[in-house]
Amino acid sequence: MRHPGTWKVDNGGLWYPADATEPKHPISPRGKTRVSIHMPRWASRITLEITGVRVERLNDCGEADAIAEGIAPELDGWTDYSNPSCQMCLNPVDSYRTLWDSINGAGAWEANAWGWVVEFRRVQR
């Protein structure tokens, strides 16, 4: 069983375990397994440039921030992660609150922790 965060190298190119496929006809025997942080930069499939970093309280999250966190739209609202099959939230921040509590435990949103906000853009290569 291979570790999900590893990339496989064969001397003729790369294949990625996340793609769930191996080359049908590798050019040469596969090389050693490397963790992604030890792969050469040219092997990355996406490059991000950090454009901003700030610290803010969790409850200062706005609607655009909540949507950027990846909450799912649901009919005329947003997914309620505390009971996704039966309910929906009317605004993105409420949806994000239910997601946060489902990941970090009941009451985690009310703790209003400090967090890092990292903004980035994708660099086209």
Rank of each mutant, 00 (worst) to 15 (best):
E110T: 08
Q87D: 02
P40E: 14
R34H: 13
N11C: 04
P40H: 11
V53L: 11
I27R: 15
H25V: 06
R57T: 09
R121C: 03
P92Q: 07
D60T: 14
S95Y: 01
G107E: 05
I46R: 11
L90W: 08
D76M: 07
S28A: 15
W15V: 09
P23G: 05
S82E: 11
A20Y: 11
A113G: 00
A108Q: 02
D94R: 01
D19V: 08
S95G: 07
G31T: 12
W15D: 07
V53Q: 14
V35S: 12
A66Y: 10
G62C: 02
S102L: 05
P29M: 07
W109I: 05
D80Y: 04
I67P: 07
T21N: 09
P84T: 06
W116F: 12
Q87V: 03
W116R: 10
I46F: 13
G62T: 06
D80Q: 00
V118I: 15
V53W: 08
M88Y: 04
A72M: 14
P84V: 05
G12W: 00
R45H: 05
E63I: 03
V123R: 03
R125Q: 04
R41P: 00
W116H: 13
D65K: 03
D76Q: 09
P84N: 14
V93N: 08
W7C: 15
G12F: 02
D76H: 10
M88S: 12
I71L: 09
S28E: 13
A68H: 10
W42H: 04
G107H: 06
V53D: 06
R125N: 08
P26L: 07
F120S: 06
C86L: 11
N83W: 07
G52H: 07
D76V: 00
V118T: 02
L99C: 05
G77T: 01
I37Q: 06
P73L: 02
D60N: 15
R30F: 13
P26F: 03
V55P: 01
M88C: 03
S44W: 01
D94H: 00
P26D: 08
P29T: 01
W7S: 12
R57S: 10
